[in-house]
């Protein structure tokens, strides 16, 4: 990063899902790794998340979904980011995502999907490498 700016990451919980153990662990690990972390808290609509990403001028956004609603929520967020001209923001998804849904999510613009058991360090490393310096 030529500017020396910290990587800014929004960690978001879309939908009504209250399972926030993973999101909080990831938020803390990213913060401990020196990134600027904005955790949205629970029950965010896709529109709210897109707005947070824009307002916070984020480099990356991580969505945590364990409710099975990912095929409804993720496309709306990906489209929202595109519509707002923020398609360079690195979009990652974590949670209970069946393997067969991953190709479709990637086609929508998701950079990477992290399923249960993914090492946290791997997620930190991924975001660091995926955000352009």
């Amino acid at each position: 990063m030529s500017t020396g700016r910290k990587i800014r990451v929004v960690v978001a919980k879309p939908g009504l899902d209250g399972h926030d153990r993973g999101a909080k662990i990831i938020a803390r690990a990213l913060r401990d790794a020196g990134m600027e972390v904005i955790y949205t808290g629970l029950h965010q609509t896709p529109e709210q998340i897109v707005e947070t990403v824009i307002q916070e001028d984020a480099d990356a956004v991580g969505l945590s979904i364990l409710s099975g609603a990912h095929m409804t929520l993720v496309p709306r967020i990906a489209e929202g980011l595109k519509a707002a001209g923020a398609d360079e923001v690195v979009l990652v998804v974590g949670g209970t995502i069946p393997g067969e849904d991953i190709p479709e999510l990637k086609e929508l613009g998701v950079a990477e999907v992290f399923t249960p058991g993914s090492p946290v360090q791997g997620i930190v490393d991924y975001i660091r490498s995926a955000v352009p310096a």
């Binding site: 939908g15 009504l16 899902d17 029950h43 609603a69 095929m71």
Partner: peptide, 18 residues
């Protein structure tokens, strides 16, 4: 389901996909 747990009807905008 999540909408029922949160007190939303199935046709509430926040219930979409859930």
């Amino acid at each position: 389901d999540m909408p029922s747990l949160m007190g939303h009807d199935s046709d509430h905008p926040r219930s979409l996909g859930e």
